[in-house]
C-alpha cells in the first residue's frame, strides 16, 4: 500500500494501455476488412497520409477507406462506447443487471422523439440534424422519468421482473404511438420507415465529432460518478445513509444517460442490447466496481460494436445486415442467460 496521500481505485496506466491496444487492434481490423477488399498496406498508407494532412488521392480505394469505412468505424466505436457506459450506469443506478436503454424502452422513446421530429418537420435552422437529436434526447429523458415513476409506484425495490414488465409495456406503447404517427404522416412514411431501421451507414466525420463531444461530456459525468454508482449498486437506501445525495446523483445520471442515448439514436438508430451485454461481460473481468467497470466499458463497448458491425458488413457481402440484427441476436441470447442466472440466485 503506497503512502502517497490519495490513491485512485481505478486501473493502472498499464491496464489502460492494454485496453487501448485491444481496441486499437479491433479498430485496425475493422478498417482494413470490408465489403471491398483493399490491400492492408494501401489502407495504412492512406490513413497515414490523411493523418499527415495530405490531400486524399482520387482513387476509389481512397474514397472507400477515408470517406466511407473510416468514419463509419469511428462512429460505430463511439456509439458502442457510449451505449455501454449508459448501460453500466443504469445497471448500477437501478441495482439491476438487466437495466439498459433498450430493455427499459428508453431507446424506443428516443426514436419516437426523432420520428416526431421527422414527421412534423421539427428542425433548428442552425443545425440541420439537431431537430431529431434534441427531440430524441427530450423523449429519452421523458421516457426514463415515466418508466421509473411507474416502476417505483408498482414496486419500490425495482425488481427485475417489474423492470422488464414495464419496459415491455412501454415499448409496446411507444410502437403503437409510432404507428399512429405513421398513419397521420403518411407522406413521410418512406423517410420514417427507413430511419427507424437504423443505420450507421453513411456516417460522417461530423457525426463522429458530435458523438465524441457527447461522449466526453456525458460519459465524463458518468465516469466521475463511479463512487456514487457503486453506492447505488449496493443499494439506494445504503447510498443515502453513507452520505450520497441520492436525488441529485440520480437526476444527473438520468440526464447524462438520456442525452447520450438520444444522440446515439438520432445518429445510428436504435441499436439494442449493446448497453446490456458489454457491462455484463466487462463485469466478469473487472468486477462490479464502477471505477474500473466504467472505463473498461468504454473500450469494451467500442470493440464489441465494431466487431458486430464488421459481422453485419461481411456475413452477406455485398448485402448489408442492419447492425441491430447482429447485436440483438447476441444480446437476446445473453439476456436469457443473465435472466436465468439472476433468477436462480435469488
Amino acid at each position: 500500500m503506497g503512502r502517497s496521500g490519495r490513491k485512485t481505485e481505478s486501473f493502472s496506466l498499464l491496464a489502460y494501455l492494454a485496453f487501448a491496444c485491444v481496441m486499437l487492434a479491433v479498430f485496425v481490423l475493422c478498417v482494413s476488412v470490408g465489403s471491398v477488399s483493399v490491400p492492408f498496406s494501401e489502407t495504412v498508407s492512406l490513413v497515414a497520409g490523411a493523418l499527415k494532412g495530405n490531400a486524399a488521392p482520387s482513387t476509389s480505394s481512397a474514397s472507400i477507406i477515408l470517406a466511407s469505412r473510416l468514419p463509419r468505424v469511428i462512429c460505430v466505436a463511439l456509439t458502442g462506447a457510449a451505449l455501454s457506459v449508459c448501460g453500466a450506469a443504469m445497471q448500477g443506478l437501478l441495482k439491476n443487471p438487466l437495466a439498459d436503454g433498450s430493455t427499459l424502452g428508453v431507446s424506443s422513446g428516443a426514436s419516437l422523439g426523432a420520428v416526431i421530429a421527422i414527421a412534423f418537420g421539427i428542425t433548428f435552422p442552425a443545425l440541420p440534424f439537431a431537430g431529431t437529436m434534441v427531440m430524441a434526447m427530450i423523449f429519452a429523458f421523458a421516457s426514463i422519468v415515466i418508466i421509473l415513476s411507474l416502476a417505483y409506484k408498482l414496486d419500490y425495490s425495482l425488481s427485475t421482473n417489474s423492470i422488464i414488465l414495464i419496459g415491455v409495456i412501454y415499448s409496446m406503447f411507444v410502437s403503437s404511438l409510432l404507428s399512429l404517427i405513421l398513419t397521420f404522416a403518411s407522406d413521410k412514411l418512406h423517410n420514417i420507415t427507413f430511419w427507424t431501421m437504423g443505420s450507421l451507414a453513411g456516417s460522417s466525420y461530423k457525426n463522429a465529432l458530435v458523438l465524441l463531444a457527447a461522449l466526453i461530456l456525458c460519459g465524463g459525468v458518468l465516469l466521475r460518478l463511479h463512487r456514487e454508482l457503486n453506492a447505488f449498486a449496493v443499494g439506494e437506501e445504503n447510498a443515502r445513509h453513507i452520505g450520497v445525495n441520492v436525488r441529485r446523483v440520480r437526476l444527473t445520471v438520468l440526464i447524462a444517460v438520456s442525452a447520450l442515448i438520444g444522440v446515439c439514436v438520432s445518429i445510428g438508430g436504435t441499436i439494442g442490447f449493446v448497453g446490456l451485454v458489454t457491462p455484463h461481460i466487462v463485469r466478469m473481468i473487472t468486477g462490479p466496481n464502477h471505477a474500473k467497470l466504467m472505463p473498461a466499458c468504454l473500450f469494451g463497448g467500442a470493440s464489441f460494436l465494431m466487431l458486430c458491425d464488421l459481422a453485419a458488413r461481411m456475413i452477406a457481402n455485398p448485402l448489408q445486415l442492419p447492425i441491430g440484427v447482429v447485436t440483438s441476436l447476441i444480446g437476446a441470447v445473453l439476456f436469457i442467460v443473465i435472466f436465468y442466472r439472476s433468477r436462480r440466485v435469488s
Binding site: 439491476n96 443487471p97 457503486n230 449498486a233 449496493v234 443499494g235 437506501e237 462490479p288 466496481n289 435469488s346
Partner: peptide
C-alpha cells in the same frame, strides 16, 4: 438497516 440484498459481486 435490518436487511441487505446485494446484487453485484463487490
Amino acid at each position: 438497516e435490518q436487511n441487505h440484498a446485494v446484487n453485484y459481486a463487490f
